[in-house]
Every structure is written in structure tokens, then in C-alpha cells.
Computed example of a mutant assay.
Amino acid sequence: MPFDTPPINLVVFAGFKRIAHGSAADVLAHLRERKDDAPYLVFNEQTGEQLDLDVHNRGGAGAPAANAETPEETPRGVGRPKLGVVAREVTLLPRHWEWLNRQPGGASVALRRLVQEASRVNADRDAVRASREAAYRFMTAIAGALPGFEEATRALFAGEQNRFEALIDSWPADLRIHLHKLSAAAWSTTE
């Protein structure tokens, strides 16, 4: 697990009402204590991704099943696994490899430097895109049948905040509140 990975917080909706949110352990405890059998949806609070939880697994942690890496997926022996450095394949043209190999420290150091610089330069644009995608994932899973869904989606990706907010204004309050949270970084003035 990389060192800079934030803990996953979850949010749970039964219908359009938020019934739980917090750490995976807190949400699991809440869901296990529920007395009703109403269906619910669990989402990663930051990414809007819908998750499947094993609520009835009393022996394990019951952590979200999505995005779990298995030991078979992690390459062994190359890189510095204890530092989070993992070797993967990169396909480049010969002239690119020649340029990389001429750089101080070699290809790996040059690639890390290039990626770091690109991530710094594009941080704002990446945040806008991630926010829009998170709001879209959440909207698609829970609000697809609500009035104005398609137009709200178009407004979200067009960066039209006022139009988006007007279109979701009639939606249930808990849904709107979570969409405002997910889309907070989606409204960039620099695009």
C-alpha cells in the first residue's frame, strides 16, 4: 500500500436518504445493527464509486471488496517494494529510450522526475476531472431515474455550476448535499 493513500471513508444511502457515513469499520458496525431490511447502496465517499461490502462476514474486517490488490498482481523482485516502488512495463519508441538513458540517473529517475513534474503542473486539471467523475459515478448509480439527470450530467461535464445546481435543486436533500460535496472541485475557472 502506498504511503500517501488516505483512509477510505464510506457513505451509505437507503433510497435517497443518507443512513451512514464514516470509516469502513463505523459503517459496517452501523449496517450490522440495522433492524430493517431496506436495500442500501454503499459508496466511497471521495470517489463516488459504488462498493460491495461483506456486512455479514463476522470473522473478517469486512472491508470494501473493490480495488483490492491480490499478491498475484504485484510483481516481485524488481524495484523497491518496501518503499512502494514497483516495476511495470513501459512501451516507448527507441528515440525515447535513448533520451531517457542519457539523463542523469538513467531512465527510471528521469521518468519519475517527469511524472512528478506533470502531476504538479496538472494538479488543478486533475482535481477538476476527478471531482466530475466522482459526482458522475455517484449520480449514475443512485439518481439515473430522477428528473433532469441527463441535463445535470451534461452541465457537470460542461463545467456549468449554476445550471447543474438548478437542475438538481428538486432532488432529495441528502442526495444534493452529497453531490455538492463530490462536485466541489469540479468548477474550475481556469478551463
Rank of each mutant, 00 (worst) to 15 (best):
A123I: 03
D126R: 15
R102L: 09
R34H: 00
A38N: 02
A166N: 15
D36A: 06
A173D: 05
D26L: 14
A24W: 10
D174Y: 10
L146A: 07
V121P: 01
A158C: 07
Q103E: 00
I19H: 12
I177V: 11
R34I: 02
A185Y: 03
A24K: 07
I142H: 13
G62Q: 09
A68H: 15
G105E: 02
G60I: 13
G48D: 05
I8E: 02
L111P: 08
G60L: 07
V115T: 10
T140F: 02
R125E: 06
R18M: 04
G144I: 07
R129K: 15
T5A: 01
V11A: 14
A20F: 13
T91W: 11
N101V: 03
R95F: 08
L41P: 01
T5S: 11
V12H: 13
E133A: 04
A166F: 11
A185D: 12
F138C: 12
V11K: 14
N67R: 15
E191Q: 10
V78L: 12
H178F: 04
A186K: 13
G106S: 00
N67C: 09
E191D: 08
T47F: 09
T70L: 00
V109F: 05
Q46D: 15
E165F: 10
P81V: 02
P104S: 04
D37M: 00
D52Y: 12
T74H: 08
W171C: 12
V128P: 08
P6R: 07
E151F: 00
A130N: 13
R58G: 10
R125G: 13
R58S: 15
L51D: 01
P6L: 04
D174G: 15
D126T: 05
P81W: 04
V27A: 08
G79K: 12
Q46T: 14
L41M: 11
S23Y: 08
L31I: 10
I177H: 06
V85N: 06
A123T: 09
S119G: 03
A134Q: 02
Q46M: 13
F138I: 13
R80P: 01
A158M: 12
R80F: 03
K17C: 00
R129G: 01
F138V: 07
A87N: 12
L100K: 02
F138H: 06
V85Y: 05
R137V: 07
V78S: 13
G59H: 06
Q103H: 01
Y136L: 09
D4A: 10
R129A: 03
T153L: 01
V12C: 09
G159Q: 08
A185S: 15
G62M: 07
P81M: 06
G48P: 03
I8C: 10
R125C: 03
L92D: 14
D36Y: 04
V90M: 12
A158Y: 05
I19N: 04
T189C: 02
L28K: 14
F138A: 08
E165R: 15
I177Q: 09
R137I: 10
K82P: 07
V78T: 14
G15W: 04
F3S: 09
I168K: 06
R132S: 03
L182V: 09
G22P: 08
